[in-house]
Simulated scan of single mutants.
Amino acid sequence: MKLQADRIDGTNAISRHGPEGVIVNGVEHTTSVVVPWKGQVLAWPVSDFAALSAEHFAMVAGLKPELVIFGSGRRIRFPSAALLRPLIDQHIGIETMDTAAACRTYNVLLAEDRPVVVALLFEAAAASPV
C-alpha cells in the first residue's frame, strides 16, 4: 500500500509497505528493518518472532527515541516484558502493532516531528508443501 509520495525533509518516511517489505526514501527493504526518524535505516538481524531477543530491542534503544513502534508482522504478537527490558530501563515507550498499522502510525508521528523508531519484523515465508 502506498502511504505518501514525498519524503519529509531530513527524515525517513515510509512510502510503501506490504507483506514482503517496505520502501523507505525510495529504497526497498525486504528483511526486518529498523527505521529511525532521522539517520541511517538499519537492517534488524531477526528473521522470525520466536528468535527475538532483548539484544534486538537493545539495538533499537541505542537510537534514543521517545517511542518505539514494533511491527510484529501480518498479525499482532506481543513480545514479553523480558525482551523489552532494554526499552523499559531507558523509559522509552513501546507500542506493538501489526506491520501495516506500525508503518501508518510511524508516518503520522514522523509528520509531527516526533523522535520515533519503527522496528519491522518481516519473517521468511514458510516453505510450501510439496
Rank of each mutant, 00 (worst) to 15 (best):
V41Y: 06
I14E: 15
N25A: 06
P19K: 02
V35H: 15
V24Q: 03
V35F: 03
Q40P: 10
I14K: 13
G39Y: 10
W44P: 14
A43T: 13
W37M: 05
L42T: 14
R16G: 01
A13D: 08
V35P: 15
V22T: 02
G26S: 15
K38L: 11
V24Y: 13
P19C: 01
V24M: 09
W37E: 05
K38E: 15
P36W: 01
T30E: 07
P36I: 00
V27K: 15
V22I: 04
W37Y: 11
G39I: 07
P19S: 10
T30Q: 03
G26P: 10
V24D: 07
N25Q: 03
P19V: 02
T31S: 07
T30W: 05
V33T: 15
S15Q: 14
T31G: 07
V35D: 13
R16Y: 09
I23K: 09
G39T: 10
I23M: 11
K38H: 01
P36R: 00
K38F: 11
L42K: 08
S32V: 13
V33G: 15
H29L: 00
E28Y: 15
K38G: 03
S32L: 01
Q40K: 13
P36A: 00
G18I: 04
S15F: 02
T30A: 01
H29T: 07
I14W: 10
W44A: 03
T31P: 12
I14D: 10
I14G: 11
I23V: 14
I23L: 12
R16P: 08
N25T: 09
V41C: 00
A13E: 09
R16M: 01
A43K: 05
V35R: 10
V22H: 02
P45D: 04
A43G: 12
A43C: 06
E20N: 12
V27P: 11
V24C: 06
L42M: 11
P45F: 00
L42I: 11
K38Q: 14
N12P: 14
I23N: 12
V34M: 13
R16A: 04
G21S: 00
Q40G: 05
A13P: 11
G18C: 02
W44T: 02
Q40T: 13
G39K: 07
E20S: 09
L42C: 15
V41F: 07
P45E: 05
V35N: 08
V22K: 00
V27H: 14
G18L: 01
I23C: 13
E20A: 04
S15A: 02
S15T: 07
E20R: 08
N12G: 06
V41H: 06
P19N: 03
T31I: 08
G18T: 00
I23H: 14
G21R: 00
V22A: 03
V35T: 12
R16F: 06
A13G: 08
N25E: 04
H17T: 07
R16I: 07
G26E: 14
P36T: 03
V41Q: 02
V27N: 10
S32F: 01
T31F: 06
H17W: 06
P19W: 13
N12V: 14
G39F: 09
